[in-house]
Amino acid sequence: MARIIGGLTTSHVPSIGKAIAQKQQQDPYWKPFFDAFHPVHDWLAREKPDVAVVIYNDHGLNNFLDKMPTFAIGAAHEYHNADEGWGIPVQKPFKGDAKLSWHIIENLVADEFDITMCQEVLVDHAFTLPMALMYPGGQDWPVRTVPVMMNSVQHPLPNPRRCYKLGQAIGKAIESYPEDIKVVLLGTGGLSHQLDGERAGFINKPFDLWCMDKMLNDPEALARLSNHEIVEKAGSQGVELMTWIAMRGAMQGRVTQISSTYHVPISNTGGAVMLLENHPVPRAIAAE
């Protein structure tokens, strides 16, 4: 059976792409953020996941306001990145796992999540940069991928409780997949930042640290937030926290922390990276 071995959450600001291209990983500005990935690299080398399910928000590369899906899942054999208009290098294509994608889609819809199904997805920086951070060095991507997009652009946004439940349904779907594969989850975005309006530049370190604590110890507390509360406390683009909440919802087992790093600022954002491990709970215990 498929197993969810862990989950990585990370900020995905476009300037990470420029920093990688310009080899600025050791610059004082970037070093604390890039260093956060050393334990991630060690863990990936040890655990060798087969598939990455990447929960992220598109920023207007694939989706436009003409048809804005609240939740959408890719079911293709390959995904391409493309020019997003601000000059970050285009990443090479990513392998899909269409069979797993359809399995997740079928289970989600059976579970009353009427998601949008996509046979073509242009994956944007929120997908590509976390992958490049996980697997630096430009080798072939060692994992197949399943993109899961969440609407963070157009209000009304899905509420945090719904995102958490979506994650739970994704987790249940993956763990019912009959193939013997190891799956790593990604939740990309955040943490606090605001790009627009007179409050642009707002970052809320205490709230971000609170979220990171709840990610490990009490994800229900994140599911209880409202989007209004998140915008107020984490800024308009802080709503990307939804991807973290969904990712955490998908981790059904006993969850432990491998690493956690927080550094302000990267670009306009509270830069946060967490790696959580998911340990299976024996069925007899889980049923009690």
Binding site: L65, Q154, H155, G197, R199, H228, V231, E232, S236
Partner: peptide
């Protein structure tokens, strides 16, 4: 609606879209 206005913070809702 989304809720009380948050100073300096636009909300891209249906009417803005």
């Amino acid at each position: 609606t989304f809720g009380a206005p948050i100073p300096g913070t636009p909300v891209f809702d249906g009417s803005a879209a």
